[in-house]
Design a protein around this nucleic acid. Structure first.
Lengths: 170, 170
DNA sequence: GATATATATCTTAGTCACTAAGAGATTTAG
DNA sequence: CTAAATCTCTTAGTGACTAAGATATATATC
């Protein structure tokens, strides 16, 4: 009974999260920027002004790749490089709000859809959803770390995949 | 009051969905396969045996790209090509369960994390979450279509982005 | 039945984002 | 003041992707 419910829930969440990924890809497409570029814009939106190194850390890309991302975003007028005056090795990346807002527009269909969905729930129910989203985030974060940990465990102790010689390290 | 709740909820969901993307990237990394390859494995898991063309349709990749995806997955022993005998133009892609299970193993940390989270909810609460996930999926799907629709609307009527000359069509 | 059109996958050439390695440039430690 | 550490950028090479068209098979029209 409960097991069935859990199964359904798992699949429903899997589907909706997959669709969320597709939405993101579509946004990047329409905006004409690469997927990673959009991901970085998202991080900048959530964290505010951030160094190039931090972007590399959060996205799992190399610093070299981030240089490319920022080059493209800067050329598109979406962000600005700002040298840190107290530590001149570092470069802050800051969004240019005016241009970035145009990207924000592309999330309007999503926001409207979600508003409509949220409309069907009481405040109390929304609080439950918020609790779940928060706990879910922490859970996924922990799971990600656990999975990464597998890469460091002695190979003879970890599930044998033999899919490719040398999985690249993130 | 409610507005604040909605804002918090939106951000929490945004964060957890971003983290979900990262989990997927990590799985692909550990398995040593490309991101799109994993996405296709996921589709095959949800839909069962599927034609190459259908994979292209669902992922938004070109058929040429799918040929590459299937080549790699086949070489890794994860799927098999099966020519449709009633229509010999078509090629079914079928997972090889034994190898594919090894990929499934990589979702164990995620499943455990989610089980732990789910443990904190009553059956009734889980049903609420299921309803939300289902409605949310439909909402995101509709939003994706709406956004794609923007690409077809007369350019002078759609929000001016001017980010890049020619966004590629998916 | 023969020819034309449509459909499904694959091939080819070229592009672009990514990694690995290391080169500046600046800061911190000894 | 020199050596090591830190941060970003550069370079060369790789691999997944697109666009366009080739190939093979199926369906429609006369």
């Amino acid at each position: 009974m409960r097991a069935g419910l859990l199964g359904e829930l798992e699949e429903a969440m899997r589907r909706s999260s997959a669709q969320g990924v597709l939405y993101g890809q579509t946004v990047a497409n329409v905006a004409g920027i690469a997927n990673s570029d959009l991901e970085c814009m998202d991080i900048l939106y959530l964290e505010g002004r951030v160094t190039a190194g931090r972007l590399a850390e959060v996205t799992g890309l190399t610093t070299g790749a981030i240089t490319g991302v920022v080059d493209r975003l800067e050329k598109a007028g979406l962000v600005r490089r700002e040298r840190d005056e107290t530590d001149r090795r570092r470069v802050f990346i800051a969004v240019v709000p005016e241009q970035a807002m145009k990207i924000g527009q592309l999330y309007v269909p999503m926001q409207q859809a979600m508003e409509k969905v949220f409309g069907g729930y009481s405040d109390e129910e929304l609080r439950l959803l918020l609790r779940f989203a928060t706990e879910g985030y922490k859970g996924v974060l922990a799971a990600t770390e656990a999975l990464k940990g597998l890469l460091d465990t002695p190979p003879e102790k970890r599930p044998d995949l033999k899919l490719k010689k040398r999985p690249r390290q993130t």
